[in-house]
Amino acid sequence: MSELKERIRADLKESMKAKEKVRTGTIRMLLAAIQAAETEGSKHEVDDNDIISIVAREIKKRRESADIYRINGRDDLADNELAEAEVLEAYQPQQLDDGALAALVDEAVAETGAHSMAQMGQVMKAATAKAAGRVDGKRLSEAVKAHLSQ
């Protein structure tokens, strides 16, 4: 079993003992998403990189739901979604700051030889591989667009 998955299971036990409803529910949903990933297609155990991708996907879902709830005037539900996203963020690697993100984008652009927006897909592919879950996809996309539009 991966180290991250063991940590998530230990955190679940700890949150259950502390009777933290939001944290317990969120971790249970995360473990269900991990189990679903393990059982779909060929049965295999997911590694830490797969779990980081699952966590990022779940955080994105929570943030998008929170935005929709806010638009529809349901701030209570939006706050709940954001609280769940905050719990999930504990399982992500340290996020890149703006300087490190700019350096990563510069490196990806140099690696691909891109010089126009038409080559953004190539740069995004290289940058996403280098970022390895340390930056949100939307933030990475905005940085690549800014660099290529100069």
Results as ranks from 00 to 15, higher is better:
Lys43Glu: 07
Asn72Val: 03
Ala33Met: 10
Val135Leu: 04
Ser42Thr: 14
Glu45Ala: 11
Asp98Leu: 09
Asp50Arg: 07
Asp98Thr: 08
His115Thr: 13
Asp97Asn: 15
Val105Asn: 02
Arg28Gly: 06
Gln150Gly: 15
Lys19His: 10
Glu111Ser: 10
Met1Glu: 15
Leu101Val: 09
Met124Ala: 11
Val55Ala: 02
Asp97Trp: 02
Gly133Cys: 08
Ser15His: 08
Met29Asp: 15
Glu40Pro: 01
Ile54Thr: 05
Gln119Trp: 05
Arg139Trp: 01
Lys60Asn: 14
Ala18Asn: 13
Tyr69Leu: 06
Ala127Asp: 03
Gln150Met: 14
Ile52Tyr: 08
Lys19Thr: 13
Asn72Cys: 02
Lys145Ile: 06
Ala33Trp: 12
Ala102Gly: 01
Asp106His: 13
Ser65Trp: 05
Thr24His: 09
Ala37Asp: 12
Met29Pro: 00
Tyr69Thr: 03
Leu140Ala: 09
Lys13Pro: 00
Leu12Glu: 14
Gln92Met: 14
Val135His: 01
Gly25Arg: 10
Asp50Pro: 03
Ala143Asn: 07
Val105Met: 05
Glu38Asp: 04
Gly25Cys: 06
Ala36Gly: 06
Leu77Gly: 05
Ala66Met: 01
Gln35Glu: 15
Ser42Ala: 13
Ala102Glu: 09
Ala32Asp: 14
Lys43Gln: 10
Asp136Gln: 10
Met29Ile: 04
Asp97Ile: 07
Lys61Val: 06
Val55Arg: 06
Asp75Ala: 13
Leu4Asp: 02
Arg134Asp: 11
Leu12Ser: 12
Asn72Lys: 10
Ile34Trp: 04
Gly99Lys: 14
Leu148Thr: 11
Val22Arg: 10
Leu96Ile: 07
Met124Leu: 15
Val46Ala: 01
Met117Thr: 12
Ser65Tyr: 05
Lys21Gly: 02
Arg134Cys: 11
Met16Phe: 04
Asp79Lys: 14
Gly25Ser: 10
Ser141Phe: 09
Ala146His: 02
Arg9Glu: 15
Glu84Pro: 00
Glu81Ala: 14
Val135Glu: 05
Ile59Trp: 07
Ala118Ile: 11
Ala78Arg: 00
Gly99Pro: 02
Thr112Phe: 11
Gly25Asn: 15
Leu77Arg: 13
Ile54Leu: 02
Gly73Arg: 03
Arg7Trp: 03
Arg74Phe: 05
Glu14Cys: 07
Ile52Val: 15
His115Pro: 01
Thr26Phe: 05
Met120Trp: 04
Val144Tyr: 04
Val46Ile: 04
Asp75Trp: 09
Ala129Asn: 09
Gln92Val: 11
Gly99Cys: 03
Gly113Lys: 03
Gln122Gly: 09
Arg23Lys: 15
Ser15Lys: 10
Ala90His: 11
Leu101Asn: 08
Ala78Gln: 01
Arg139Pro: 04
Ala33Gly: 01
Asp76Tyr: 12
Val123Ala: 10
Glu38Arg: 00
Ala78Leu: 08
Leu104Ala: 08
Gly73His: 07
Ala90Ser: 13
Ala114Gly: 08
Glu86Phe: 02
Ser65Arg: 13
Val46Asn: 00
Arg28Ile: 12
Glu38Pro: 00
Ser53His: 13
Ala90Trp: 02
Glu40Cys: 02
Ala146Pro: 00
Ser141Tyr: 07
Lys43Leu: 11
Asp11Val: 04
